[in-house]
Design a protein around this nucleic acid. Structure first.
Length: 960
RNA sequence: GGGCGUAUAGCUCAGUGGUAGAGCACUGUGUUGACAUCGCAGGGGCCGGGAGUUCAACUCUCUCUACGCCCACCA
């Protein structure tokens, strides 16, 4: 033995040692140039992140697969790294600044970004060490970051390419604007919550001389957002709504602003809802935007009444009264906003139509508004209500990119496990909207687009020099846009455009903030004119870059790179279903489009880890379970095993500390079994193949290994982590510890030592993907394994087969022992009592089993002897094993009544079975139509139970 | 409004067209010097309700109920 084991197993004492050893020795990525590659990329956690229980699940599953494939001899690569997480990281650094009474805007963009990098170096990536504690065997030597220069290069290249292909474009339309973070976000980053809100009804006066059919001189409109009436541009009614047919094309004069707006017919207006007329604010509502477009307003004409922080600003027609300017859109921090003021003024002006509701006493009470549940959009990061805002943003043509992935899943090139997610995938992909990828942040991949003023029709530039953008964004209307992966290329593009109207040109590059590049050219009069170009200030959505993760981490865009060649496509992706759209689908889109291949053939989606009561874990609820705490308490192996054992496809996992504890106990069990082996001189096996075995018990356990291995391989192939974990668990505990080790006690000869040592080694190997630490520790303590660590050991191969005869024999022994124990227990006989047994007319199996395993029977079944032949007269209990019956002689006082009761109970059960089977076999339909195997089995069962019943009856007769 | 998922022992969950299993909890018990973080034995379920297909359904189909999740522009 290489080392003695402590009497108790302490996970903490071995975990650090092994993870350092594995990493230091480069075993996480064994260099196996000739081996078949196997590749998984890890979903890059946010660089700001720390390990939560969901990571523990996600990474445990991946590590199990990676370790399994590594043991099977593959060149297994698990790519690891972190995501720069634009918004999240910028928020963390800004928060730190706030704590020091500092703020981002005190710095230049470059200075701020430098500070973020500083933060990243100092405190970022904490999670990577936590992943190590879980035992994740990632390739740390090639740790990636989505802002690494090679990664950034890839991102820019992709942007330029997609732009060239028309798949990225700039557009002016409404976006989901987060007024807290002051950036656009994508549809996916909006979370809708149902909130209690109000529904106000107002009168919009018709223009002079116009009335409705019923004589009213106003149109009633209803809204949940009264403040936006300051930017109303129309009132819509349904084209078929006869109540309003006469006023379509006429105008209303808006209260407060006095703006005269058109009444339009549009299908959007629902005659059933409210009055059937709806106010239209194209600049601040997605539906209204569409209505406005249909009504003929260009995007540029749509009125905007809010600034980036959702405070009221003046519209272009300057009709908003001064008292509204600078008010927030609605009540905030106890201060009334534009909403409250608009309602107040409308009420004062007699434009508010009160809502009448009965109180609990049945009296009718007037209210300003009608209570209503409103689906309200919130930004998932900023946590404030999203404002639809009209801006120029960059969009990816997701609809086009989605086509190939949809096809790949449909034709099976990409398998989604569990399959039930396919429908969700299709549903989203088939209705996918343009993806807004620009973010008004500083931290991230700055968009590789440069702007320069548009030339006037006569070729002159009607701008002041130097030109600087008035807003963050350049505008579609006023500026040229040059997309290029570097500034000099953008300058070239600018020159190329300018050269169409000018012949003599030169370029000068200088560093400045607003105008990064300035192209200077000479016009025909030889006068120097500065043509300034400046870079887009925005950065890309973080998910834009992480969509490239499966290939940009391994050398792409250099498609000849060795790593890329070997490890792309990857073999599997494991992710939570919550990022199916955010990440998985986008990797498929980008992977297909850019490399022509699906990033992986298989996508495994797991659920959420929930709190013990089934609630979703969240910091605000305070029910977050810290995986590191669990590791401290029970060990990483136990936590990992828990995750695997609970991971059945398509279900969330509820946290259960008792269960984690149970798997810690399992580890202890294995520890102690190994201690037993060591004390009996059972050491490491020196063969890969099963040793030669002659005894039934040894042959049997080898066969059990073979069966376990097959079940385990099957489970892994199906990605049934629960089945895999349970398989090795039950083999180790129930078969090996509870029976094999008990059976061999007292008769451990050289053959048995060899077999036991081999079986224990197979357990270590098969269990290693699930419990890497304890298995490596025990492996090392079983022999001199310095040059053959478990992490890169060889996975067992089925070969030994199953010896059916040995299996029957041992199962007979087990059956006898169990039956005897049960009977003793029921009769109140001391379990330690040694008894004598008699087997009249033994079967060949019984005879052989008894003759060859007398020692085991004495140890386990506590049978001093078994004689073949009739039992002598006297009190006896009867037990059945297979087709055989044993009479056990009882010495001393015997409770005849208890034995009689026990036999009667057994007889009842047996008779019930017989009757049921008789009924079935008596049914002509069953015999004729059922599968022959089913009929055969019923007949065999019937015979078995009948015989058993007869024996029990005979025994009862004997008892008297 | 659409889509999906789940309802099986006290709890947490597997499961298969031929009349149910695990872990924990519970009850009883402790003989064999690996292990009380253990051993042995046991109790406990008309597999959410209803209908259908079938010789046979917990397992397939439909439907209802409950809970959960996702998507969606209802002002």
């Amino acid at each position: 033995m290489t080392g003695n084991l402590d009497t108790t197993f302490d996970p903490a004492s071995i975990e650090a040692k092994w993870r350092q050893h594995w990493e230091a020795e480069g075993l996480y990525r064994p260099n196996r140039p000739d081996a078949e590659p196997f590749t998984i990329v890890n979903p890059p956690p946010n660089v700001t992140g720390s390990l939560h229980i969901g990571h523990a699940l996600d990474n445990t599953l991946q590590d199990i697969v990676i370790r399994y494939e590594r043991l099977r001899g593959k060149d297994a690569l698990w790519v690891v790294g972190t995501d720069h997480a634009g918004i999240a990281t910028q928020m963390v650094v800004e928060r730190q600044m706030e704590a020091k009474q500092d703020k981002r805007t005190n710095y230049s963009r470059e200075e701020f970004i430098a500070k973020v990098w500083e933060w990243k170096e100092e405190s970022g990536g904490e999670i990577t060490n936590q992943l190590r504690r879980l035992g994740c065997s990632m390739d740390w030597s090639r740790e990636q970051f989505t802002m690494d220069s090679h990664f950034s290069d890839a991102v820019l290249k992709v942007f330029v390419k997609l732009h060239e292909q028309g798949l990225i474009y700039r557009d002016k339309r409404l976006v989901n604007w987060d007024p807290k973070l002051k950036t656009a976000i994508s549809d996916l980053e909006v979370e809708t919550q149902d909130l209690k809100g109000s529904f106000w009804h107002f009168k919009y006066p018709l223009e002079d001389g116009v009335t409705l059919g019923d004589g009213r001189d106003y149109i009633e409109v209803a809204t949940t957002r009264p403040e936006t009436m300051l930017a109303d541009m129309a009132v819509a009614v349904h084209p078929d709504d006869e109540r309003y047919a006469s006023v379509v094309g006429k105008h209303v004069v808006l209260p407060i602003t006095g703006r005269r707006v058109l009444i339009v017919a549009d299908e959007h207006a629902d005659p059933e809802l409210g009055s059937g007329a709806v106010k239209i604010t194209p600049g601040h509502d997605f539906n209204d935007f569409d209505v406005g477009k249909r009504a003929g307003f260009a995007a540029g004409e749509m009125l905007n009444m809010l600034d980036g922080e959702a405070n009221v600003c003046q519209t272009s027609d300057e009709l908003i009264p001064a008292e509204y300017l600078s008010l927030h859109r609605f009540k905030r921090d106890g201060q009334d906003g534009a909403r409250e003021l608009v309602v107040q003024r409308l009420k004062e002006g007699g434009y508010l139509i009160p809502h009448i509701a009965k109180n609990k006493d049945g009296e009718e009470i007037e209210h300003d508004s009608e209570p209503r549940t409103i689906a309200t959009p919130f930004g998932d990061r900023g946590g404030v209500v999203i404002e639809p805002w009209l801006t120029d943003q960059w969009y990816v043509d997701a609809e086009t990119l989605a086509k190939a992935p949809i096809e790949a899943v449909r034709n099976g090139d990409v398998e989604i496990v569990p399959k039930s997610w396919e429908k969700t995938f299709f549903n989203w992909m088939e209705n996918i909207q343009p993806w807004c990828v620009s973010r008004q942040l500083w931290w991230g991949h700055q968009i590789p687009a440069w702007y320069g003023p548009k030339l006037a029709a006569d070729g002159t530039i009607a701008i002041e020099v130097p030109h600087a953008p008035k807003q963050l964004n350049a505008s579609l209307e006023n500026d040229n846009c040059f997309v290029a992966s570097a500034s000099d290329e953008a300058a070239e593009a600018a020159l190329s455009l300018l050269s169409k109207s000018n012949s003599k040109l030169e370029v000068r590059v200088f560093n400045g903030r607003a105008a990064a590049i300035e192209a200077v050219f000479l016009n025909q009069l030889d006068l120097a004119i500065h043509y300034p170009i400046w870079r887009d200030e925005d950065v890309l959505d973080t998910w834009f870059s992480s969509a490239l993760w499966p290939f940009a981490t391994i050398g792409w865009p250099d498609e000849d790179a060795e790593l890329f060649q070997k490890h792309y496509p990857n073999n599997l992706l494991v992710s939570g279903f919550d990022i199916l759209f955010f990440w998985d689908a986008r990797m498929m889109m980008m992977g297909q489009h850019l490399t022509g291949q699906n990033p992986w053939p298989r996508l495994y989606l797991h659920g959420l880890v929930r709190a013990a009561d089934g609630a979703k874990m969240s910091k605000s609820k305070g029910n977050v379970v810290d995986p590191l705490g669990l590791i401290d308490q029970y060990g990483a192996d136990a936590l990992r095993f828990f995750m695997a054992a609970m991971e059945s496809q398509g279900r969330d996992i509820k946290m259960d500390d008792n269960r984690v504890e149970g798997y810690r106990n399992f580890a202890t069990k294995l520890w102690n079994a190994t201690r037993f082996c060591q004390s009996n001189d059972i050491g490491a096996s020196n063969t890969l193949e099963a040793p030669k075995a002659t005894t039934a018990v040894n042959k049997w356990i080898i066969g059990e290994v073979t069966e376990t291995l097959a079940a385990l391989d099957k489970a892994m192939a199906d990605l049934r982590f629960d089945a895999a974990a349970n398989t090795i668990y039950h083999f180790t505990w129930d078969r090996f510890c509870d029976w094999y080790l008990e059976l061999i006690k007292g008769s451990i000869d050289d053959e048995t030592k060899a077999v036991a040592g081999w079986v224990l080694d197979q357990i270590f190997v098969m269990l290693h993907p699930f419990m890497p630490f304890i298995t490596e520790e025990l492996w090392s303590k079983q022999g001199d394994r310095a040059s053959y660590p478990l992490i890169t050991a060889k996975w067992p191969e089925p070969g030994a087969g199953v010896d059916a005869k040995a299996k029957r024999e041992v199962e007979w022994l087990i059956g006898l022992t169990s039956a005897l124990r049960t009977a003793k227990n029921e009769l109140g006989i001391s379990p330690g009592a040694k008894l004598d047994g008699y087997c009249e007319a033994p079967s060949a199996l019984a005879k052989e089993a008894v003759e060859r395993n007398a020692a085991s029977l004495e140890r386990l079944a506590r049978l001093s002897s078994i004689s073949f032949g009739a039992p002598p007269a006297g009190a006896a209990m009867q037990i059945g094993v297979g087709e055989d019956t044993l009479a056990i002689l009882l010495e001393g006082v015997v409770d005849i009544d208890a034995e009689r009761a026990r036999l009667k109970k057994a007889l009842e059960a047996s008779t019930k079975e017989v009757k049921s089977l008789e009924g079935r076999l008596g049914n002509a339909n069953f015999v004729e139509r059922a599968k022959p195997e089913a009929v055969e089995k019923a007949k065999a069962d019937h015979a078995h139970h009948s015989a058993e019943g007869e024996r029990l009856e005979a025994a009862l007769v004997r008892l008297g």
